[in-house]
Write a protein that binds this DNA or RNA. Structure first.
Lengths: 196, 196
DNA sequence: ACCTGCATGTAATTAGTTACATGATTTT
DNA sequence: AAAATCATGTAACTAATTACATGCAGGT
């Protein structure tokens, strides 16, 4: 009885916090899940249509001035049950897909300046995500755990990459013999901002 | 000029280390990329067939006793050029897809024992991946960087989750007011092994 | 004048997973 | 006796991305 947390299930999940439109749900995804789950309109709208057809949600159309009606969805009892069952049956997988690490695996085939640019870009993006994560006030304890997890892991990742980038810039030698990069302190000279 | 590191590109990458069969490539993926890139036979074999048709690789069939011929692939110059171009044009993205964090976001809807089981399972899996990462000797500096990154990040993740699980087991109160979990030391009572 | 936010959706495509299909040899 | 390793592949399916299509209101 293994279930998957696909976009449909996540929509049900968001609706447990109260009624919402597809647009609202997308916003919620961005604000709350963006560092570990992505979904766009192209998956959310069809998901809601299917959930409606299956009786997991109901809609109410709210007329809007000069734009399409807001379609506000509510969870039905069946929908709530279904979501709880999904939660109970979903294995807690955690997957990373990193083109960054692939690039680094083949670092020897990259021009040196490209290598530096790749590292800078990654650090910048980690910083951006961290910034976004700091500013989020978490209502429920679950979101609190997730934000804490994100901060912890992203900081570790950021510091590791930044330290390596620092050593690279310091001396283009193959890197000193020590295995694990020393924790963050490792000289980190100023970097140029990489284009956004 | 943005490129994607899909399975086809990764196959070319693996072949820069020397000729290999589809089977060998799968093994290489598992040993080296498994914590940040997954691919099965169902994507590797078709990828190799396409690369062959496109002239990026050549094959040599090596007869085998009582099993299908080993088809050993070699990179052509065109294939190598193509891979280098792909590396140069790929944005260093790094994405996480975590059903674990989704589960935790909705922790309030989970039965307490299920919550504990989820946390245990995650810690066990982080430990398993870490074990795999420790035992890998890395030939090239790129792989060294990737292994170090994996160890650093996975340890941070593991410790964060383990500490939280420890606090949960200690007292089922909503969790003390401090924000970030104290680094690893936080009481971590013995856990039962979760079934594999 | 342009961009961002609000608000909905569809269609085509891409990419990947899962299950199937076969079968000898070696290790536990 | 069973499981894992070696070795290839195909077909059906699932899921999600990307681009398209429309259009007003408000801020810079």
């Amino acid at each position: 009885m293994n279930a998957t947390l696909d976009v449909k299930a996540l929509c049900l999940g968001v609706l447990t916090h109260g009624e919402a439109s597809g647009y609202d749900i997308k916003k919620y995804f961005e604000e709350t899940f963006s560092h570990f789950y992505l979904a766009g309109y192209g998956s959310i709208y069809p998901a809601l249509a299917e959930l409606l057809a299956e009786g997991a949600v109901t809609v109410r159309a709210v007329p809007q001035a000069g734009r399409p009606d807001r379609k506000v969805y509510q969870l039905t009892d069946a929908g709530r049950q279904r979501f709880l069952a999904t939660l109970a049956a979903t294995p807690p997988s955690h997957k990373v897909r990193s083109e960054f690490l692939v690039l680094m695996h083949f670092a020897a085939l990259l021009p040196p300046e490209r290598l530096l640019a790749v590292l800078d870009e990654r650090v910048d993006e980690f910083d951006r995500t961290l910034g976004q994560l700091e500013e989020c006030e978490r209502e429920n304890p679950g979101a609190h755990f997730c934000a804490g997890f994100g901060r912890t892991v992203l900081r570790a990742a950021r510091d590791y990459v930044a330290a390596y980038r620092g050593r690279l810039a310091a001396g283009p030698r193959p890197a000193p013999a020590n295995d694990v990069v020393s924790p963050a302190v490792a000289s980190e000279p100023p970097r140029r901002k990489t284009g956004s």
